[in-house]
Design a protein around this nucleic acid. Structure first.
Lengths: 367, 367
DNA sequence: CTGAAAGCGCTAACAT
DNA sequence: ATGTTAGCGCTTTCAG
């Protein structure tokens, strides 16, 4: 991560505390006020304080006010820990994921967080970097010790699948994306039809076939690849071998773009995501091919930078934020007692921009 | 966010539970095993179990083994809630931020998470979208009820500053980025010198002055803008009025790029971040200017896509992930008893790529 | 080395 | 409507 130069300066910036300070008033109690402190200050019993806090039962207006005043005066804040312990109600939502800074992941997490926050649930992030069983086990152990209402697992990749398998059955779980497994409530984006739409669009433009650069899939083959393959097979077009990018990043597309650029038979390329598409375009241009004049390139996801890229990247929009929000919705339904595993699927949509065009004059591509 | 078409299909996918199932064995205890269940199963007292769990005191090998076996058999997992309650040790780290999906933010969060996880601390994300005092107060209340070891506040923007002000003094806090306030331990990236380096580089290339597009600052003026201004003033160059992008996104740069493109006096533009720089480049080209032949454009941050952008974006690399890791480091130091507020500063470094070049032939830019 | 006793801060019955 | 009594699951004295 680091390793470059970029000198690091640890500055002392000492600053005395109990200096010749202004108001030496504030005693700063080492221990925060507890409910019994409040009860004492208000001259009521502990349960009464609890009652005004939770609204579980009525309290006379005057006492109620005294309690409120005491809370204010003591800057009292109830301990979620003690509450969770005694009531058995846990409210945290854990998001288990292999990535946090990649577009689709971070945006989905954002959606989960937004919906969870609106419903009063703190969200904790649990990153599992690899499929190493020990690492997964450790992460699961840590997560299960938290005061959890439930878990959202991002199954965009193989790590997510493995995490799902390692989770016990007695915790509310919802899976996001990937193949529907029927074991958990799940939200998906219909990647297969999105990919199919994209490939059909390219074919309609006049391309004989479409090459494909896949991103790391969550199983043998993900929906994007399947959709691509199906359409080609359906129309009887040649199905070129799949090229696999070794990450979700643009860099992995560059070398592939160069290779693709060396093959004059390539007129259209469908990439597993927009970043890789950008890398492929860069590689293609390094190889002397113009986009879209010589070869059309399309991506997937509709990354925020896809529209400012030149040429504008034709892609399929996936609403990751809504996906995350729906994931939380399914979790909430489950917490509310809804039993049956549910599958909620949404359709991505084609976004036409400048990176796809008809192939070069007929015949040229095959000579 | 949503609002487009993209049909949503709620599928039933019902699946019976108590069907004519295979092994009807697993009784699935509604309540998870507790420490007393383990003690009973192992034939020891509860404190003994606790001792093997925490390693707080020695336990004879045989008893120890019996406990371990019981734990395994009962699939027992200690309750972090009960532990936190009795021991007073809270371990969660909250990251309070206004954004989660923007490069600098998500990457910093990733760094915090990585370091926290390595040290055994779960991290919870608390998003505060605006400076609305009520929203801030609500977020702070929620956060403070969590079993927190401390809080990391992302102060890349004005929301972060406000959150910091709303936090009580009795919680360990570390601030990330922004102006050093001396009240909290803080990690920063020296944006001012990064910006200065960039501007000096442009001036050395022969540009008479450098225009600046700022991103939303955390205070009146951030380090990037200050560094830019200082260098121009130091060399006696004209200081053009600052243009303010209305977000961190590329889109906000497009219109500004078009405007800048209409002014023949503009030969170099320094943008507050890479996304905005990409938007500016797009706008400039829409206005008929070439980059870098007609105008040089540089960004800030070294966004992952900066290197695949065409032309490669000249920028300043900011190591956000390391920033987040250092933030956690400061928090850990504080938890370990280190009192004094500390300022840890790191230097970003210039990354030369293709988007900056000498200005068009002398005299041309002024006619 | 081990168990008995106490209690963390709070809510959930129970009695009034 | 309010106080009393229990007790959540665990760690921490304190005796042995």
């Amino acid at each position: 991560m680091t390793g470059h130069d970029g000198g690091m300066t640890g500055t002392g910036l000492v600053e005395d505390d109990g200096g010749a300070g202004a108001a030496a008033a504030v005693p700063t109690p080492a221990r925060p006020a507890s409910i019994s402190d409040v009860a004492r200050a208000a001259g009521v019993s502990v349960p009464t304080v609890s009652r005004v806090l939770t609204g579980a039962a009525r309290v006379s207006p005057e006492r109620r006010q005294r309690v409120l005043d005491a809370i204010e005066a003591l800057r009292y804040r109830p301990s979620a820990t003690a509450r969770a312990l005694v009531s058995g109600r846990r409210d945290q939502v854990a998001v288990m994921t292999s990535e946090t800074a990649v577009h689709g992941y971070s945006t989905t997490i954002k959606g989960v967080e937004t919906a969870a926050r609106a419903a009063g649930h703190p969200v904790v992030i649990s990153v599992v970097e690899s499929r190493d069983p020990e690492e997964i086990d450790r992460a699961v152990q840590v997560a299960l010790q938290l005061p959890l209402a439930g878990i959202v697992v991002l199954k965009f990749d193989a790590v997510g699948v493995a995490v799902l398998d390692a989770l016990p059955a007695d915790v509310p779980v919802v899976a996001v994306s990937g193949e529907a497994d029927g074991r958990h409530p799940q939200v998906v984006l219909d990647e297969e039809s999105g990919a199919a739409e994209l490939v059909r669009y390219l074919l309609d433009l006049g391309h004989r076939t479409v090459h494909h650069v896949a991103v790391p899939p969550s199983r043998a083959e993900d929906g994007r690849t399947t959709g691509w393959r199906r359409v080609l097979e359906a129309v009887g077009a040649e199905v070129p071998p799949v090229r696999l990018a070794d990450s979700f990043g643009a860099r992995s597309g560059i070398a592939i773009g160069r290779e693709l650029g060396a093959d004059p038979g390539v007129t259209a390329v469908f990439c597993g995501n927009d970043e890789v598409a950008m890398g492929v375009i860069r590689g293609l241009e390094e190889a002397g091919r113009r986009v879209p004049e010589d070869v059309s390139v399309v991506g997937f996801d509709d990354h925020p930078l896809a529209e400012v890229w030149r040429p504008g990247l034709t892609t399929v929009h996936q609403d990751f934020e809504a996906l995350g929000e729906r994931a939380f919705g399914l979790l909430a339904a489950q917490l509310a007692g809804d039993r049956r595993p549910t599958l909620s699927s949404a359709l991505p949509w084609l976004v036409r921009r400048g990176s796809a065009a008809p192939p070069p004059a007929a015949g040229q591509s095959r000579r």
